[in-house]
Amino acid sequence: MKLLLVGANGTIGSAVYKEMNNDVEIITASRTNSDVEVDITSTASISRMFEQVGHVDAIASAAGAAHFGYVEEMTPKQNLIAVDSKLLGQINLVLLGLKYIHNNGSITLTTGILMDDPIEKAASAAMANGGIRAFVKSAAIEMPRGIRINHVSPGMLEDSIEKYGPLFQGFEPVASKRVGLAFRKSILGAQTGQSYNVY
């Protein structure tokens, strides 16, 4: 089985790689230091990635940036970071990648706890997460050739405490292993249109 892992160098991507590496062939993709480079905010870059990689059995996205800041101080340009990256970037992986996925393959996108359990400074990230959740639920009923689509919604990972801990007061961090297992369920399981919440 050949898996294209987008955002492989990040915290979530690393958890997915560690969980899946012994069982499937993984092609890593990110902005730098991967098998193939991609900028998910660029449809041209996404298309070049797929042309380079060719056909795969599964796509897993652990990519997507967002601006964190108070709504009253946020500019439309700052909000577009999440729109162009985590929301449209991941959706474009689906739209441009479908023809490269084998029959009965799978797509797994990443959302996050912020759409369900909001914190200050995270409205833009929550918006992108909620948009992906809605897209996955709706797109699942239209996927061609038996292709499945799901999303994994993790809480703050233990490995991210140093970076994000001050924002997530009172939240219990989740183990990377649990996040990796949720991706495994989506990639190798049989369900579609699902939200795998790892809270």
Score class of each variant (00 low, 15 high):
residue 116 D to A: 07
residue 48 R to T: 09
residue 86 K to F: 14
residue 146 G to K: 09
residue 133 R to Y: 07
residue 98 L to T: 02
residue 62 A to R: 08
residue 142 E to V: 02
residue 135 F to T: 02
residue 115 M to V: 14
residue 76 P to A: 12
residue 75 T to A: 12
residue 38 V to G: 04
residue 131 G to W: 15
residue 42 S to C: 09
residue 109 L to P: 00
residue 46 I to N: 03
residue 54 G to E: 07
residue 66 A to Y: 10
residue 46 I to R: 05
residue 136 V to N: 00
residue 148 R to A: 01
residue 36 V to G: 08
residue 87 L to T: 08
residue 55 H to I: 08
residue 44 A to Q: 08
residue 111 T to L: 11
residue 63 A to E: 12
residue 107 I to V: 11
residue 41 T to Y: 11
residue 129 N to W: 06
residue 69 G to C: 14
residue 35 D to L: 05
residue 63 A to L: 10
residue 117 D to I: 15
residue 101 I to F: 02
residue 35 D to A: 10
residue 112 G to Y: 01
residue 96 L to F: 14
residue 102 H to S: 11
residue 115 M to S: 15
residue 134 A to L: 08
residue 50 F to M: 04
residue 106 S to T: 02
residue 62 A to K: 10
residue 135 F to A: 01
residue 106 S to G: 04
residue 96 L to M: 04
residue 102 H to I: 00
residue 59 I to P: 00
residue 140 A to H: 02
residue 48 R to E: 09
residue 100 Y to K: 08
residue 133 R to C: 10
residue 108 T to W: 00
residue 70 Y to V: 07
residue 104 N to R: 09
residue 95 L to Q: 11
residue 66 A to V: 13
residue 66 A to G: 09
residue 53 V to H: 11
residue 146 G to C: 06
residue 91 I to D: 01
residue 43 T to C: 05
residue 119 I to A: 09
residue 138 S to Y: 02
residue 148 R to C: 02
residue 114 L to C: 05
residue 104 N to E: 11
residue 76 P to V: 07
residue 81 I to H: 05
residue 82 A to E: 07
residue 125 A to Y: 03
residue 39 D to H: 13
residue 59 I to E: 03
residue 103 N to C: 03
residue 129 N to V: 08
residue 41 T to D: 06
residue 94 V to H: 00
residue 65 A to Y: 10
residue 56 V to P: 01
residue 148 R to L: 03
residue 139 A to M: 02
residue 119 I to K: 14
residue 142 E to N: 13
residue 75 T to R: 14
residue 43 T to D: 07
residue 113 I to L: 15
residue 91 I to N: 06
residue 137 K to C: 02
residue 115 M to N: 08
residue 124 S to V: 10
residue 131 G to E: 14
residue 107 I to Q: 01
residue 59 I to V: 15
residue 98 L to F: 01
residue 82 A to K: 04
residue 138 S to P: 00
residue 127 M to R: 05
residue 64 G to I: 13
residue 115 M to L: 06
residue 78 Q to K: 15
residue 126 A to C: 06
residue 116 D to F: 05
residue 145 R to C: 08
residue 48 R to N: 11
residue 42 S to R: 06
residue 119 I to W: 02
residue 80 L to C: 07
residue 57 D to I: 10
residue 115 M to W: 09
residue 75 T to C: 07
residue 57 D to G: 15
residue 119 I to Q: 07
residue 131 G to Y: 15
residue 143 M to H: 02
residue 54 G to D: 06
residue 53 V to N: 05
residue 83 V to D: 06
residue 129 N to R: 12
